[in-house]
Write a protein that binds this DNA or RNA. Structure first.
Lengths: 147, 147
DNA sequence: TAACATTCTTGTATTTATTACAAAGTTAGG
DNA sequence: CCTAACTTTGTAATAAATACAAGAATGTTA
């Protein structure tokens, strides 16, 4: 099981079930574990991180299943894919207030930031915006001190 | 040679030489070719695209040289690395007015767009912004019609 | 409940982007 | 023209992501 009661939860199991049901994604135990890991975490994990974390609870889950699950949920707009750094895709829960992301170039952590409204007005007429990403890179307060 | 006179040029060879000299990057023929390709082009090519294009003029250039050149120029802030899509890094000339990018999810092309000022105010106090990227994804006018 | 069709998961094998590194080639300055 | 520093090459290695076929699980229908 997901041991929901053992840590601070932002999205409950019933909420996750509802999300998956609405998107007609069968709530298999692995998918729930993937969603739980991405949703109830401050970080924005990579597929690899999700895989390693889930492996602790489900020793025989395959990497392909993790990729499949992440893709399915991204397509269903339950998750958002963040191409915020070279080499790997990070995942973020989509169902929360729109926000931008700050990546610390020193420690690698990613922080949620505000997002101004009206950004879509920046695109030229005729273009249809489906997604907007605002990324910052720099030093987080902790790393800014230690250098 | 670079055949500068054969196509519309936005950055001249002497300008490129000056950029490299200022950054203390030796202007080898390959590096000039890399910079020329990225600078004088509407697209925002990947390392692979740069390599293939240059191969036509320099049949024995190696892929590693292209990567080395791109990295050196990115580090010198002559080029900017765009992590706008999964799987590969795209390159953009840094020395022009700040702008955002729009990626067409249908044809894959990337377009320059406006960038509002003051975005850095979105980050929380204590964070030091070194780079800002605003990405849009959606349909370009041509692809919006044909669907 | 039994049988079937669909969906999920696995595991392996590939592909693709990128990096590492040592050897060979090139360039600039004395 | 010699030497030191820099550049390029080519090959090999990593790492992220994908393809695919076989097996397992699930839901549905009779």
């Amino acid at each position: 099981m997901l041991n929901s009661e053992m840590r601070k939860i932002m999205v409950s199991e019933s909420q996750m079930l509802e999300m998956l049901r609405q998107s007609e994604i069968r709530p298999s135990i692995h998918r729930l574990a993937v969603l739980d890991y991405v949703a109830n975490r401050q970080t924005h994990p990579t597929a690899e991180e999700v895989y390693k974390a889930i492996l602790a609870d489900f020793p025989n889950v395959s990497k392909t299943t993790v990729y499949n699950s992440l893709h399915a949920m991204a397509e269903a707009h339950i998750l958002r894919e963040l191409e915020i750094e070279s080499g790997s895709t990070r995942y973020d829960l989509a169902l929360q207030a729109p926000h931008s992301h700050f990546r610390c170039t020193s420690c690698g952590r990613i922080f949620d930031m505000n997002l101004p409204s009206g950004l879509d007005n920046m695109v030229s007429p005729g273009f249809k915006v489906e997604a907007t990403d605002l990324f910052f890179a720099g030093l987080c307060p902790r790393c800014a001190k230690n250098n």
